[in-house]
Structures are given as structure tokens and as C-alpha cells.
Write a protein that binds this DNA or RNA. Sequence first.
RNA 1: GGGUUGGUAGCUCAGUCGGUAGAGCAGCGGCCUUUUAAGCCGUUGGUCGUGGGUUCGAGUCCCACCCAACCCA
Length: 483
Amino acid sequence: MDETNSLIEQRKAKLAGLRAKAIDPFSNSFSPTEKCGEARANYVEGREVSLAGRITAHRDMGKSQFIDIRDQSGRIQVYAQKQVLGEEQYEIFKQLDMGDFLGVRGTLFTTKTGEISVRLESFIILTKALRPPPEKWHGLVDTETRYRQRYLDLMANPDVKETFLKRSQIVHEIRGFLHERGFVEVETPMMQGIPGGAAAQPFVTHHNSLGSDFYLRIALELYLKRLLVGGIDRVFEIGRIFRNEGLSRKHNPEFTMLEAYQAFGDYESMMELVQSMICHVSQKVLGTLVIEHKDGEGAVTRTIDLTPQWRRVKFKDLVREVGGADWFEVSPEERRKRAASLDVEIGKEYEDFEVSQALFEKLIEPTLIQPTFVTHVPKEFVPLAKVSREDPTTVEVFECCINGQEIAPAYSEQNDPIEQRERLEHQAGGEQHKLDEDFIVALEHGMPPAGGMGLGIDRLCMMLLGQESIRDVILFPQLKPKL
RNA sequence: GGGUUGGUAGCUCAGUCGGUAGAGCAGCGGCCUUUUAAGCCGUUGGUCGUGGGUUCGAGUCCCACCCAACCCA
């Protein structure tokens, strides 16, 4: 990216030429009367407008020229005539390049081909672009450049821009929905002495003046629960969390999580919350509850119907469907054998419950395209939830799966400090993670019974926006630094 | 970590059997005062991802490495 080439040199020469004419090609300000798209929408023949935008097309007719300028609202054509601008200004206009930002003043008219345009009376160069934009027709295709220089991707590929504008709307609607229900948005530490709330490898950093190592958070959970103890009964946070694990189509090392906790609720109230919230967001942002995913040719590859009520099914029933009706009765060795025969890889160090979990993740979760609440999850999976009253081998938890991915887990949150300590110590399984003693102290002060949920914002966006890779819903996905 | 595919002009892509590095768009020069992927004529632009090797000769064959996408772990 540091290379120079003749295209850049030519533009720098034009820049110098403008400066020699005492023209500042990086003007301090210009006040458009409206956006480009608004000018088109509010068309009145002969109306005077001032507009600003980036030059995205250029058609030279000799003594007149057409250019397109574009801002976020859309594009509009500008018609420049030598006889109107005069010799000197017209020469400057001809020197403009694709990618330059331009302020224009003129009157609206319609060309004989029916295109709403601005008849240019005067213009001002707002920013000279020293590098050429991507090609106009094929756009920018190279995935590496698209991710490393996302601004070029946004510039060249309107559907990419649309995806990220929609992502912003999705997050906006989530906030609105939760505020409407009386949830309080908070911010909790990203740098934590003990990374808790999930089982994941953390990133480590160091604070110089405190002389301490810190971990980037792997979950929001334990701090939000402290706030339940403190009396904030409905609380949520939307924030980045960091997991030092592999990258894939579904995993970015930093990703965005929503967690919400509701005192005097349980996993059932969270089920209603998740279903209502996702439906609200889909309806507001997409105007529908039926999501169609399409391939490159526009053919529908998958249809997701979010219309309530969503399916509820017990974890064990799903596992029995693929593992056999007696899956939970047979010996642990038999379970391993069956898993292997189903092509599910089982690590030697796996505990027995992890065999069932692997079966679920490999064979069942990918098939859960339509929204599904998987309930009655074995208690070993989830150390932070309350045991089920109807089946004490399970916990009051659901995993909400849509689009073949787990999108939102939720629990009746464990609030018994003694029970919680035992479960966390068992999960720690030796020395891998230190126990967050301050969190236990907080529980000892009494945390109200509560329902809690976590929702992966990136995966929700993939599902709603029909994107197959998490990198296509994260503006700047993690890539290896390039020398 | 393993496998597959890819990396050639600013962008999108060709490049046959190992024999002078190509096109479209963009750019530059010219013509054209209602075009819209404008058109027509002319033209510039290359460390073929990096480093080795084989060869009279390598974008092409071999080896190693870098980056990316996808699949697997």
C-alpha cells in the first residue's frame, strides 16, 4: 500500500496544479442544502440546490460533461457545460478524478433520457483523492483487500454497505426493545483480573503502573450479576468480548455479545424475551419474519421462519434421535463407540457428558435451521444455572438455535453461593481458571432469582442478513498483519 | 495444525507445450454540448506474492516460505 505508481503521481501533479492556481483541494467546509438522494426525491424543475458527494462516474462529451456524485443517501448526475462555467472553471472541472469529493451548486432539471440532474453553475473541490477507486463495473472482489481496506469495499459494493447499515439498525432496535422493557444499559470492565463467565481461553495484557496482568473479558456475565446484587433489577450490556481461540467462518477473536439479566425472572421469561426481541428486530429492520438466504445468483438457498411460537424440544430427546433411544442408559464406553460410528470425533480426555455434547454440536445443531429452544440441558454443561425442578439431572437452560447455530443461551441463574462455588470449582477442574472469589462474595450478599440471556450479535446479524461468514458482518475482521 | 484453491497493471481477469507479458475498465492525448458500463481514434502503465532451484531460456516446472478463502482438526 506504500507503493507509488503513475496513477498516484498523476493525481499528485493535478493537486500541485490546483495549488498553483491558489485553489485549496481540501476545503474546510461546504454546506449542502440537502443530500443527493433528497434532491432527487424532492425534484422540482429549476429548483436551486447545493449538493456534496464523491465523484463515482464520469462521461466526457467535449464541451460538456456528465458526472455522478454520491453521498450516503444515493447518487445524482451533474451536468457541466463549458459555456456556463467559463473557460477557466471548465478546465479545472475536466481535471477532476473519480473519487474526488465535490461541492456543486446548480438547478435541477431532467435530461431527455429522463434522468434527474443538476445543471452545474459553480463547484468547489472538497477533497482531492490521491488514489484511484476500485473498478466501476466489477467492483472490488479480492477478499483480502475487501477485509483489510474495508473502506474500498464499502465504496465499491453497495450491498456490503447495506449489510453494515442494517447491522447498525439491528443493534439500535435491540437497544430500543430492551429500554422499552425497562432494562438499564451499563458498561462493565473489559480488563479483568480473573476472566469469568465462560470457559474460553483469554487474551492477556499488562497494566504497567499497577504492575498487574489483566485478561480481556471472555463474557459479561459475572459483573452484570453483581449489578443484580446491587439492585439494578433489569440490566444489559452490549459489548465486545475476546476469546483467544481459532478463527473460522463462525468465529472472530473479538465479537459482540448482548447479555441481559432480569431479576425475578427465569429461563422461561428469557425465552419470551429472546423470541419477542428477535421478532421485533426482524420486523423493524427487514419488515418481515420470513428470512430468505440467497446464493450469488440470487437463488434462495434457505428460508427461516421466525413466526412465533418457536419450537421447544428437550436436549435429551434430540440426542436420542441420532444416538439411539437408550443413549442415556447405555455405558459411557458404548456412548463413545456409538459417537465414533457416527463420525463424531471424541477426544480421549473428554468426560462422559462431553460425548453427548459433541454429538449435539456436530450432528444436531447444524440441522436446527428454524428457531428452536433446546431445553433441559444436562447440568454438567452449565455451571451457572439452576437445577431443573422436573429433572434434577438437567438445568433450567435453553439454547436458542437458529440457522444451524447457537444464537442465544439463557438460564435460570444460579444464585446459591455454596452450590455456585462447587460448580465453578468442578468446571475449573484443577488450576485452569482461578475462581472469582469476589463474585462468590457478591452472591453471598444475596442475588435475586433471575433469568439471564446472552446473544451473539454477529451470529444474529448473519442469520438476519443472510451472510455465511462472520467476516461479512464485522467491519474489520481479524486478519494476520501484513508486512 | 492438516488439506484444497488462489495471489499476474490501480481494479476485474486471460496467459496454450517452458520461448518477446495480454485484454476490459481506470489513466493520459485527441474528437464529440443530453450521456449514463457513453462512443470513436491513439497511447502510457508489470519486482507475474517472496526467496531459492532446474534450464540456453521460468508467469509457466521443482522446493521452501508469506498472505487469503474454503474444508477438516
